[in-house]
Design a protein around this nucleic acid. Structure first.
Lengths: 339, 339
DNA sequence: GTGAAAGCGCTAACAA
DNA sequence: TTGTTAGCGCTTTCAC
C-alpha cells in the first residue's frame, strides 16, 4: 500500500525545493524548461494528485455543496438531487447529501456540522417539523456567517435568500379549473396539514378556484393527512363520508391511494372519477390506469438551485440581491382524466 | 457578515496563546480552572466551531464517506443510501453521493477526484458500462492506496474487498420454485443483459430451477432488456410471441410493465398470470393489483455496507481480511401471486 | 531559475 | 499553568 504522494516527497526525491515543485507542476514560467519537464514527468509517472483538503484549507473553499432534504425515497426529491448533481458536476463541485428525515433537530445538527468549513453552500427543502415550529434561526445564522443558502419547494418567507419554487397556487388552479370545465363540481382535495408551505398553498389554490367559479368550499371535501402510516384507511373513510366526481392530491402517493380506493369501491376511473396528482414520478407513470399529474420539473428545479448557488459562490463581490425563481409546471393528462 | 471564529482570534482577544485556547476548549487538566472557564465562556458566547477542514488536514481523516451509485431515481438505490446515511450519521460520518449515471467514465472521474483526500472511503455499486467493459483498474488502484472500498449489489469477483450482496441465485430459485409448486410451467423471465452481474445471476437461478424440476429451458421465454426507453413495446412483443402462466422480472419497473401488458391483453392477474418482481419499492406496493416481490432489504444493505466501511476505517491495524456479507431476502406475497 | 518562509486552522510534544 | 514550535500539504511572496 503506497500512501499518496506529496509535493514534499517529490521535492526530496528530485532534490529541489517544495516551491519549485509546486511551480513546476503549474507550468510556471519561473522554472526552467528542464526542471519543469523533469518534475512533471516524475509526477505523472507516480500519479501525483494534489491533496484536496490542503487546497481547501488554503483556498477557503471546498468545492462541495450540501443538499438537505427531508427524505430520499421519494421521486420528487430524488429527481431534484439528480438535477443538482448534474449541474454541480459540470462546474467541478461535489454534492453532499443529508437527510433531515423531516426532523427539526436533524436538520439543525446536519447544517451546523457542515457549516464549519466542510462545504461552500447549502441547497435545502425544509423538514416538516421545522415548518411546524417555524424556527429558522439555524438557517438565518448560517446565511449571516456569509454562507449562501438556496431553498427549494418547501421554503419560507421568513428567510431572505434565493429560492426555487413552483407556483403552487397557480398549478392547483389550473387542475381544479380543468375539473370544473369538464363539469365536475364535487371535487375532493387531499393535502398535508397547513403548516407545510406547499400543502397550504395548494389548498389555497383549490379554495380560490372553487370560489372564483361560484362553488362553495365544503371543508368536508378537504382531507389533510397528518400521519402517513395509515393513508388507506383515512382515504377509505373519506370516500365513505363523501361523494366526488374528481379528486386532486398533493402528491403521487395520496393519489394512487385514492385510485385504489375508488376502484375497490367499484368506481370507474376516469368515467366516474377524475384524479390529478402533484409530482410526476414513477408511481403516476406506472400505475394502472396511469395518473394525470402536475409536472413539477424537479430535475430542472435542482439544476436551477445549483446554478443559483454556484453563481453566488463564484461571484466576486457579495451581493445582497436575492431572487426567487419560479419554475413552470404543466398539467399532464394521462388515464385518470377525461380529455 | 461575521466570518467564522478561529482559535487565533480567541487567543488574541483573551491575550493568551493559541495552544492554551486549544487545550482549554478540550477541558484539559493542564489549564487552570479560571482560564479554562474564561475561554470556554468566550467560545460559547461567540459560538466557536472548530474548522473541519483544518481538522481533516491534521488528522488525515475527513469523517465523510462517498457512495457511488448508478442512479438515484430508483427505489433500491435510494433505500440503500438511506441506510448508509442512517448508520453513518450515528458514527458521526457525513455521506457524499455521486451518480455514475451508468457511465464508466463518470465513475472513474468521480472516484479519482474524491480519492485525493476528500473522503475516507467508498461504498459503491458498479455502473452498467463498467460491468460491460470489465475494467476495474480504478477501483483496484484506490484500494491499493489504502482507501477502503465496500461494494454492494452490482459487485465483481475481480476486486478483492468487502461486499454486501443478496444471494441472487437463491432468491430467484425460491420464486421460480414457488411458481412451479403452483403448477405453473410456462414461466417467463425478464432480465438485463448478462454483463450485469445481478441480472446474470438471477437468470442463472431461473434456469437452474427449471432444470432441477425437469423443465426444459426455452430461450424464447427469457427477455433481456437492453434499452429501457421502449420497455412496453418489447414486452408487448414478448407476450405476442409466447404464452405464460407466470412471469418473473428482475426489477419493479419491468414487472409493472408486464402487469400492464397482461391486463391490456385481457389476462387476469393472478388467475391467469402470476408475477413476482425483485425490489420491494414504491411501484410494487402501490400498483393495482400490488405486485409480489423479493424483498431485498435495501435499507439494511446500506447499513451493513456502512458498518463494514466504518469498521475498516476505525480499526487500528489494517487488516487484509475481507468478507462478503449476504443479506437474506424474503418472498413477499401480494396480489400478483395466488397463495 | 530556485528556494526560504509565512500562512490557511488546528494539535501535540516539549520547553519554560 | 502557559507558551513555543513543528507539522499536516499546499500556495505565494520575496530573497538570493
Amino acid at each position: 500500500m503506497k500512501k499518496n504522494l506529496t509535493l514534499k516527497q517529490i521535492a526530496k526525491e528530485l532534490d529541489v525545493s517544495i516551491s519549485t515543485v509546486s511551480k513546476a507542476l503549474k507550468d510556471s514560467e519561473e522554472i526552467s524548461e528542464a526542471t519543469r519537464k523533469k518534475i512533471q514527468a516524475f509526477a505523472k509517472l507516480y500519479n501525483y494528485k494534489p491533496n484536496n483538503i490542503a487546497l481547501s484549507l488554503k483556498n477557503r473553499k471546498t468545492k462541495t455543496i450540501a443538499v438537505i432534504i427531508p427524505e430520499i425515497v421519494h421521486d420528487f426529491f430524488a429527481m431534484v438531487i439528480s438535477g443538482v448533481e448534474n449541474l454541480a458536476n459540470q462546474y467541478g463541485y461535489n454534492v453532499l447529501i443529508c437527510l433531515s428525515n423531516e426532523s427539526y433537530e436533524r436538520e439543525v445538527i446536519n447544517m451546523e456540522m457542515l457549516a464549519s468549513g466542510s462545504i461552500d453552500g447549502f441547497i435545502m427543502s425544509l423538514a416538516k417539523e421545522t415548518q411546524a415550529k417555524k424556527d429558522y434561526h439555524h438557517i438565518k445564522e448560517i446565511i449571516n456567517q456569509g454562507m449562501p443558502v438556496v431553498m427549494f419547494d418547501r421554503v419560507t418567507r421568513e428567510v431572505y435568500t434565493d429560492k426555487v419554487i413552483i407556483d403552487d397556487v397557480l398549478a392547483t388552479q389550473e387542475a381544479i379549473q380543468y375539473f370544473i370545465s369538464k363539469g365536475k363540481r364535487k371535487i375532493g382535495f387531499i393535502t398535508t396539514p397547513d403548516y407545510i408551505s406547499v400543502g397550504r398553498l395548494r389548498t389555497e389554490g383549490y379554495m380560490r378556484t372553487l370560489e372564483a367559479n361560484g362553488i362553495d368550499v365544503d371543508e368536508n371535501l378537504i382531507l389533510r393527512i397528518e400521519d402517513e402510516t395509515n393513508i388507506d384507511t383515512v382515504i377509505e373513510e373519506f370516500f365513505e363520508k363523501n361523494e366526488f366526481n374528481a379528486v386532486m392530491a398533493v402528491n403521487e402517493l395520496y393519489a394512487v391511494n385514492v385510485l385504489k380506493t375508488a376502484l375497490k369501491r367499484g368506481l370507474k376511473v376516469p368515467e366516474d372519477l377524475n384524479i390529478i396528482a402533484f409530482t410526476d414520478g414513477v408511481i403516476s407513470k406506472n400505475s394502472i390506469p396511469s395518473i394525470s399529474t402536475i409536472k413539477q420539473n424537479a430535475f430542472k428545479m435542482g439544476e436551477i438551485a445549483a446554478k443559483l448557488l454556484i453563481q453566488k459562490l463564484e461571484s466576486e463581490h457579495e451581493n445582497e440581491h436575492y431572487i426567487t425563481e419560479v419554475i413552470s409546471t404543466e398539467l399532464l393528462h394521462r388515464e385518470t382524466t377525461t380529455i
